[in-house]
Nucleic acid binder design. Structure first.
Lengths: 110, 110
DNA sequence: ATATAATATGAATATCAATTCATATGAACG
DNA sequence: CGTTCATATGAATTGATATTCATATTATAT
């Protein structure tokens, strides 16, 4: 293996700490699932209750509930209860901007 | 289950098509891995060869190579060969902006 | 109090993706 | 041309995570 002293010194100094990188990774992992991405996109258009999401995406209610918990724990969505129904909506402006940046990347012509 | 006609009509009209959503998901999945996130961050600081990345992250060369391929296929990094050595660097300005948006989210106080 | 509707949750299963292992390729050099 | 170094790749294994299944919770209505 050849030498990389100078290079690695610089990188080591500038890299964020492990916990920051892990938090970043955890966040993007949440966007990296087909079901969650669809839920997020739908909620960016309308506040929706669990069974509306389930009906629209044609995915079982319990699978949706599990994913809503993941999204809630990442503080990307929030819920409010109205009687038996629980309504979900986006809880963060970054959802829009993160998705838009991603969208720009995938639609870029090369 | 109660009724959601009007709501779902609107969501259906505005949602991007399946392939767009799948491409978005695929992209964010790439950011959602500890090893790849570290590689991307390091490459955002310096152009690096495979063995420098491997040495720095203390991860076997072959695992790094596999992940570099994933990153290349997502058009997030590019490579150039110089003799036996292959140097990698970022291939897209969106890497910076996507990571920054994520960073803002995780550092936000609630 | 019981029944029903909407949602949530724990555990088991199924699916998918990262790492490892073995080996191949490509380049420089004697 | 054989050896060494840097990197890449296919297949096997391991590890992680999404979905399903069974069931619990919460609220409303009769």
């Amino acid at each position: 293996m050849h030498d990389h002293h100078a290079l690695l010194d610089h990188v080591m100094k500038e890299m964020p700490d492990d916990s920051t990188l892990d938090n970043l990774t955890r966040l993007f992992k949440v966007f990296g699932d087909r079901t969650r991405m669809r839920i997020l996109y739908a909620l960016s258009l309308e506040e929706m209750c669990v069974c509306a999401i389930s009906e629209y995406l044609k995915i079982e209610q319990t699978a949706i509930s599990h994913q809503l918990r993941v999204l809630r724990e990442s503080r990307l969505i929030k819920s409010r209860r109205e009687g038996k129904t629980v309504y979900y909506s986006l809880d963060d402006s970054h959802v829009h901007s993160i998705i838009s940046e991603g969208y720009e990347h995938i639609t870029e012509v090369h």
